[in-house]
Computed example of a mutant assay.
Amino acid sequence: MKRIIGATLFGLGILSLLLAMALAWVIVPSQRKVPLDLVPPDVVVETANASFVQAKMLPNGTPQVVVENAGLRSTTGIKPDFKAAAELGGDTIIWNVYHSTNRIDTGEMINSAESRVALDRASGAAVPWAGQCHTETQAPCTPGDVAFAGQLYLFPFGTEKRAYQYWDSTLGKPLPIAYQATEEYNGLSTYRFQQQIPDQPADMNAETLAGLLGFLAPGATSGTISYRATRTLWVEPETGAIVGYREQQHRELVPDVGQPVVIFDADLQYDQATLDAVRKEAESGLALLNLLGFWVPLGLAILGLVLVSAGVLLSRAAGPRGGHRADETTRPLPTPVPS
């Protein structure tokens, strides 16, 4: 009986060790992906003081375009499109992204935008998709009018200490964002990345540019937009979650006559509600990865070693096959009888 129990314990121990290795090296790494049912929290960046162009209609019906100074709040909301993602297989998610910027003091909308983007579930980077689109008008965005690339809202699971490509919406292309340091931020150990975009021309549609010149640079017949920006991101490396964000952006209208006019200048950062929400989401993902990728395999490995050891000891205690045989007793020789 001991031999049977020992063999059973030994087999269970080996099974536990194999399951531990499979979890740690195969199952969990293969599942380091954005959940298909994930609905990210709304993200808000704001600043107490910014310079920006505001276009509005006066009570008498006259249009007005002026440079204002006030606090700004930009909100980004994401709604996953599960049906469209299902058509692309299990490795891609489709997000409908809604963005609006409002004055903090009056609540007036300054601008809005809408996008559709396909993202790789493991790397977080944009992937080619015919349905990608972006619009900053009231009209629905037209599929295929943009080619998103690089990181937009997520970094890879297991983010590395290296440069990545990060999307710049003003220039409409990805640019390098460099790893700078490892530091504590928002209660988490993070990698800090920074993207620096030096002064350069930025495209603007001819109608909008003509409108700006007409209101802000009377007498000018042409002009360009000068743009520069610095973005700093704090990324929780295991989950790829962006838990901190700062964007310093400056844009100027440069007419062919007269002085440049600042049309946007702001230093935007996550508000406290966003900091709390993204930290909670990152902590939840990190805890699950640690549980399934380390603690459960460790527990199974320890259990497996204990069972294997117990099985070996019981098998040895059972002795050789056939059981123990008692030593034979030597019979005394018969005593001879005298004749």
Rank of each mutant, 00 (worst) to 15 (best):
M1S: 07
L9C: 13
L9F: 12
F10G: 14
G13A: 13
L17A: 14
L19Y: 08
A20T: 11
L23D: 02
V28S: 00
Q31P: 00
R32D: 00
R32V: 06
L36S: 10
D37V: 12
V39D: 03
P41N: 10
V45A: 08
E46M: 10
A50V: 06
F52P: 03
F52M: 01
V53C: 05
Q54L: 10
A55R: 08
K56I: 06
G61R: 10
G61S: 08
T62H: 08
V66Y: 10
E68F: 12
G71V: 11
R73L: 09
K79Q: 02
K79W: 03
D81K: 00
K83I: 06
A84T: 04
E87P: 00
E87V: 03
L88K: 05
G90E: 11
G90F: 11
I93D: 12
V97T: 12
Y98P: 03
Y98E: 13
H99R: 11
R116H: 02
D120E: 04
D120H: 00
S123M: 02
G124K: 05
A125K: 05
V127E: 01
P140K: 04
T142L: 12
V146M: 13
V146I: 14
F148R: 02
G150C: 14
L154K: 06
G158A: 07
K161V: 04
K161P: 01
Y166D: 02
Y166F: 02
W167P: 00
W167Y: 03
W167L: 03
D168A: 01
L171S: 03
G172D: 06
L175I: 13
L175H: 01
A181P: 08
T182H: 09
E184A: 14
S189L: 14
Y191G: 10
Y191E: 10
F193T: 13
Q196F: 10
P201S: 07
M204R: 06
L209V: 12
L212V: 04
A217I: 01
A220V: 07
T221Q: 06
Y227C: 03
T230N: 02
T230Y: 06
E236K: 04
G240S: 09
V254K: 06
V257S: 02
Q269L: 03
Y270P: 05
V278P: 04
V278S: 07
R279S: 09
E281G: 09
G285P: 07
G285A: 12
A287F: 08
G293Y: 08
G299K: 13
L303R: 13
V306T: 15
V308C: 13
A310Q: 14
L314W: 15
L314Q: 13
L314V: 14
A318S: 15
R321M: 12
G323N: 09
H324K: 11
R325P: 00
A326C: 04
A326T: 10
D327M: 12
T329S: 09
T329K: 10
R331Y: 14
P332A: 13
P334M: 15
V337I: 15
